[in-house]
Design a protein around this nucleic acid. Structure first.
Length: 754
RNA sequence: GGCUAUGUAGCUCAGUCGGUUAGAGCGCAGCAUUCAUAAUGCUGAUGUCGGUGGUUCAAGUCCACCCAUAGCCA
């Protein structure tokens, strides 16, 4: 059945290195993993590659906000991503990063060939520029009034309210969402990739007929609309690779993101002393597949193949596009607790439940997939525990107790066994075609047959009448053999269950073809529950936890360092930060439709999540445009949006900050300072001189005698007007909106705040 | 706004080229059973196939429009 081993290279979309992995990402990673594991168990040479998408404006700003370098940020996220994928048994052969030497090499090599072939054009364009932050603004970082419907606070590229698209310069009263400044138009030379030159090649590639029909339809629409040149450069400051020979110009994140597939492969093959060209070269005999979400088709079916063609590489064998994930019929939502991070899930539930459920609902189309939590529980319990594992459970006892754990040497019902082994090819065909739901349906139909068989022969009755009966041994032995076949068929989906079952049966790791060889006169081990039921309470607890991770931010404020565990929370709620939303949407996050309008806006910046469920798709990482409509935005308020919650800190870090109640003993203007007031703070005897930037909101005479809270152990800082020995706590965006913190009545100067 | 998809029992889905009475699993009801992680087996009820109109001897299936949902508009 398994003829000549195929040589296959598979990728899933790269998660953006700006936030945590969530169940949307996992839908894609698991669908891909199932396909890869299927190929491997069938004996093919299949490599599964992924990487973090680590470049772009959102990451740069996010790191900036957290007070760390982009390198530090992406390193931290990389470790978290790797751990979370592994937790779901996603078996990457390599998980690399686009911010790597390999990727720089790949990007520069491809660019050099494109440029030499005349596929790169240079042109000066006008763009919005933030005069305060001194940087060009991606569309998603500009907000203003929609030129069509006049909804307030819309993104620079499209309106959440009326859904129309436009350019940032069309906005009424545009504002930079980074600094709040009014952006100015400024010229800059940009580099463009000549996509239209590849129309014929791309059209042929699409016409070859291997793409999904829905995808081909969408591409036809794009072709008829006409391909346009693609702006592939961004001006400094930008976190990415500088374009060779173009100081201050960087590759747009979407240029080097798909190249990360090659870089990850190269990183792996270099270690094995092999040449990446055997997979990527124009004459490669390997198959190459990309699994992606439907939101990033343009990049993978047009830009990427064109870049490959133009630089003398092979084209993808296919691009498998999937839909998005919804939870209980709606986009993932933080307020509903359905924006579930990978880590939060793992804190409560077995990853194989989710793998099975996703498999049971995945087809080869681009339809969205709904995680219906009640259906999830019932389905997993009924199918896996009630049907599959139950087959082993109801046979094992007899074999172990009555026959010393030894299986019969004879097949009790040859025809039934034949039926099971004979189903293998149809199931394999379903896996191969990514029709996992069909594969699962057929496997479960077999499981029903196994249970019916046991029911028909009633081993418990034979045992009562004739405890040592050969028939009893044969019936239960066949039951276990049927179970073994079911588990082999499920192995791509449930590697963990397969491994535990192999241990129970006392057999080596099984391949697909092993299903044809029954276990006869074979010694098995004691049976232990292989999989436990999904408890309703566990699901509820997970949802609760997901809700909490949104609030994690405030918690931090109140000093609750407790649930440090929810790193995840930090990740998305705050962590994701600014750009994320926009950007990336790319990565997706979930947005809560409801909140969309208002929230969306804000979300923009913030948060995270904006995006949609689909995040699944991940990969993107697009700083400016791509993420566009992804925003959904959750019901996150404006302040969180404008000023996302910082990276999580440990309790130990928190207690390092010594906050004290202080009385403002003196307050006065500072000669020559626009924003500062000089305060003398009394900490019960000890006084501190502090310069506070609150002049725009307070008059000195209104402050004297008031209590506030200060950071008492901040390193003294020398300023133009003297040494400042601490900081006063205050909230607000600035200007007249600054509010100093005041303790409740009764607090005494010098008391520690904790 | 334009485009590409999706909409079938309470839930999740399958329905090929238009062709008897529209299917499965779960859930539900009844019965049986007690080997098994309250698991299993048998029987049964449940649908204006999103809506309206059209083509046809015949429409879940084809066409038009509308509604809802998702994505894309680089």
């Amino acid at each position: 059945m398994t003829a000549r081993p195929r040589k296959i290279f598979v990728t899933c979309a790269l998660p953006y290195a700006n936030g945590s992995i969530h169940i949307g990402h996992l839908l894609e990673a698991i669908q891909t993993d199932i396909w890869v594991r299927f190929q491997k168990v069938r004996g093919h040479d299949c490599l599964y590659l992924c990487a973090d998408d680590a470049h772009g404006t959102p990451i740069m700003l996010s790191a900036d906000q957290q007070g760390i370098t982009p390198e530090q940020l992406i390193e931290r996220i990389h470790a978290e991503h790797e751990r979370d994928y592994a937790g779901f048994e996603v078996g990457f052969d390599n998980f690399h990063t686009t911010h790597s030497d390999e990727n720089r090499e790949v990007a520069e090599a491809i660019y050099a060939r494109l440029d030499a072939a005349g596929h790169i054009k240079r042109r000066t364009i006008t763009q919005f520029y933030d005069p305060v932050k001194q940087m060009f603004l991606p569309d998603r970082f500009i907000r203003g009034e929609c030129p069509f419907c006049h909804a307030q606070d819309q993104y620079g590229d499209s309106c959440e309210s009326c859904n129309r698209t436009y350019t940032p310069t069309d906005l009424v009263n545009p504002v930079s969402s980074i600094s709040g400044a009014t952006p100015v138009e400024k010229e800059s030379e940009h580099y463009f990739f000549d996509l239209p030159a590849f129309e014929t090649v791309l059209h042929d590639w699409v016409g070859a007929g291997h793409l999904q029909p829905e995808v081909a339809n969408k591409l036809e629409e794009w072709f008829s609309a006409g391909l346009k040149e693609w702006d592939i450069s961004r001006d400094a400051p930008y976190f990415g690779f500088e374009i060779p020979g173009a100081p201050g110009k960087y590759f747009y994140v979407w240029v080097d993101a798909p190249m990360g597939y090659f870089a990850s492969l190269k990183n792996l093959l270099d270690r094995q002393g092999r040449d990446v060209a055997e997979y990527t070269g124009a004459g490669s005999d390997a198959e190459m597949y990309h699994f992606i979400g439907k939101d990033i088709m343009y990049f993978h079916t047009l830009f990427w193949p064109a870049l490959l063609q133009g630089s003398g590489h092979r084209l993808p064998s296919n691009v498998f596009v999937h839909g998005f994930l919804t939870v209980d019929g709606k986009k993932m939502s933080k307020s509903r607790g359905t924006f579930i991070n990978a880590r939060t899930y793992l804190d409560h539930l077995d990853p194989e439940y989710l793998r099975y459920y996703f498999a049971a609902k995945s087809g080869s189309g681009v339809d969205d997939i709904d995680l219906n939590l009640e259906d999830f529980r019932q389905r997993v319990n009924a199918d896996l525990v009630g049907k599959v594992v139950n087959v082993a459970s109801r046979c094992a006892g007899f074999i172990n107790k009555r026959f010393g754990g030894t299986l019969a040497a004879h097949i009790h019902d040859e025809a039934l066994l034949q039926e099971f082994t004979g189903a293998g090819e149809a199931i394999a065909a379903a896996y191969e075609a990514r029709e996992y739901a069909r594969a699962v349906r057929e496997i479960m139909a077999l499981a029903d047959k196994a249970n019916q068989y046991i029911d028909r022969h009633k081993p418990w009755e034979i045992a009562r009448e004739d405890p040592g009966s050969g028939e009893l041994q044969q019936v239960c032995s066949l039951g276990l053999n049927l179970f073994r076949i079911l588990v082999i068929y499920l192995k791509p989906v449930l590697p963990g269950l397969a491994q535990r079952s192999e241990e129970f049966l006392g057999i080596s790791p099984q391949t697909w073809d092993d299903q044809a060889t029954p276990l006869l006169d074979h010694r098995i081990n004691k049976f232990k529950p292989l999989l436990t039921r999904v408890e309703k309470e566990r699901i509820e607890a997970m949802i609760e936890d997901s809700k909490e991770s949104l609030g994690a931010g405030d918690a931090a404020g109140t000093g609750a360092g407790d649930d440090a565990a929810e790193g995840a929370g930090a990740g998305d709620a705050g962590g994701t930060t600014a750009g994320a939303g926009d950007a990336g949407g790319a990565t997706a996050g979930a947005g809560d439709a409801g909140a969309a309008t208002a929230g969306a806006g804000d979300a923009g910046g913030a948060t995270a999540g904006a995006g949609d469920a689909g995040g699944a798709t991940a990969g993107a990482g697009d700083a400016d445009n791509a993420g566009a409509s992804q925003t959904g935005a959750d019901a996150i308020n404006k302040h969180l949006a404008d000023d996302p919650i910082s990276a999580e800190v440990s309790f130990d870090d928190f207690v390092k900050i010594d906050l004290r109640v202080a009385t403002i003993a003196r307050a006065e203007y500072v000669d020559g300072a626009d924003k500062l007031l000089q305060l003398t703070l009394d900490l019960d005897g000890e006084t501190r001189n502090v310069f506070a930037g609150i002049k725009s909101a307070y008059r000195p005479e209104d402050l004297v005698g008031r209590q506030t809270v200060m950071v008492a152990n901040l390193a003294p800082r020398k300023m133009r007007f003297g040494v400042s020995e601490g900081m006063v706590l205050a909230a607000g965006p600035g200007g007249e909106e600054i509010f100093i913190v005041t303790p409740d009545t009764g607090a005494k100067p010098g008391m520690r705040v904790k």
